[in-house]
Design a protein around this nucleic acid. Structure first.
Lengths: 234, 234
DNA sequence: ATTTGTCATTGCGCTAGCGCAATATAGGTA
DNA sequence: TACCTATATTGCGCTAGCGCAATGACAAAT
């Protein structure tokens, strides 16, 4: 199914979902996968579609969104290289709870729901890994719920940017770029605010030298200061 | 470790985490568990404690909360009989992201982190079950994020009450009681609003005959109408 | 019977952030 | 060069919901 197996094996060894797998096992699993290429802005699946595929991003970036009854959109996650999505739905014989759309040209490995189940039963380590990954999401989502419930927009925007820049794990020293296209509308949909409010906040921050933006690419120039704002320490 | 094994076995067979387990396996797992009784309002663990235990509620009710830097609390979940909590943290060698406190006298089965890991490796079916449970939370949390981002307080309160009454699965016909103590403050902390706003909304709904409340026990008299409010159909 | 503590209600003023409209900017393309 | 479309900015008025304070209701404790 896959052309360039050895190169892909390299990628997969860094993927959390496959942590602790033997090269032999990994190779067997890789043989089951489909490698698919997508253009930018292409839809992988829609919220409500029957969930029968599970993806891992090889390169590129995918946007996961939900819409409410009135059609207002919320962005839930931006999985990038090495990250998995679709596990959530695949084992529950349910519909995808989100819509997946690429934001740039993207390649993904895909497995069918039945294959995933089989893989986990054969390699229980994968079950543990999946639990770890899902737990991480739960913790992140819990935090976002907390933020939406108790914090003001400015704090949430700061947190959103830090999160997107991956500045949490990496510490807050030096400047950090968000390496994919990101409109004000996107940021609004991630932080639970309106386009207008985001525009005002980001303009102010640019004026203060907190961040630089050009052509929808944002760079956090003072992550440490942003971190302060995120925590409400004005 | 456990006194009344046969009675507990009955409870466990209904638990999602143990779905598909053989009686023999279940029995072996039960032997590893500790059954602990808690009074009302007792703390099981605090946010930030090292996560080394995984619980299943036998009877009673537990409240899972988070606090932000300023000490404002958010309620994330109210696990009841048959429901698991603590899986989230236990496999990630991390701290509990929430505080767990009973809301009434409660009995829980508890396993150590190392035991859970061992159990899953021995019975991969448990891994699949855990993934299903975690996925359900993710979907619920995603929905709450969507609600907090796009809906007004009244809608969110309606949804919170329906969720607590378990009216989603059970359909919306007939009246439904929420069978545990629940203050206005609690509802506020679940729906991302203030005590005052909740009080106003619930008073109005009581006047309209939508719900009845006495001694901190709320009954949804017209779940279908609440469902309409939740969806913004005024 | 009185006190104490917890929880709920309601009035009132305030403000963060929404929502709309008008205008500006910047790539892409013909 | 001019045009088109998508995105961003900014001003302005408005309101949902917050935050405080005063009061009330009820149960448990002494």
């Amino acid at each position: 199914m896959v052309e360039d197996t050895s190169q892909l094996l390299d990628v997969l060894t860094g993927v959390e979902f496959f942590r602790g797998m033997s090269p032999t096992g990994l190779d067997a699993i890789l043989r089951l996968a489909d490698l698919t290429s997508f253009d930018a802005d292409e839809y992988l699946f829609f919220q409500g579609d029957p969930a029968d595929v599970f993806y891992i991003v090889v390169d590129g970036r995918v946007k996961l969104t939900q819409v409410n009854e009135e059609g207002v959109q919320v962005i839930l996650n931006y999985p990038g290289p090495g990250e998995a999505f679709g596990i959530v739905a695949v084992l529950r014989e349910m519909a995808f709870p989100v819509t997946a759309q690429t934001v740039e040209p993207t390649r993904c490995l895909a497995w069918r729901d039945s294959q995933l189940k089989q893989m986990i039963l054969e390699y229980p380590q994968l079950g543990l890994n999946a639990i770890r990954i899902l737990s991480k999401f739960i913790v992140e989502f819990q935090e976002r719920i907390k933020e939406l419930s108790t914090e003001r927009v400015e704090q949430r925007v700061a947190r959103t940017l830090l999160r997107l820049a991956g500045a949490e794990e990496a510490g807050v020293s030096g400047s950090r770029a968000i390496d994919f296209r990101l409109t004000r509308q996107d940021i609004a949909e991630m932080s639970g605010a309106t386009l207008f409010t985001i525009s005002r906040i980001l303009s102010a921050w640019e004026r203060e030298g907190l961040l630089g933006s050009d052509a929808q690419h944002i760079t956090l120039l003072q992550p440490a200061r942003l971190q302060e704002l995120a925590e409400g320490r004005e």
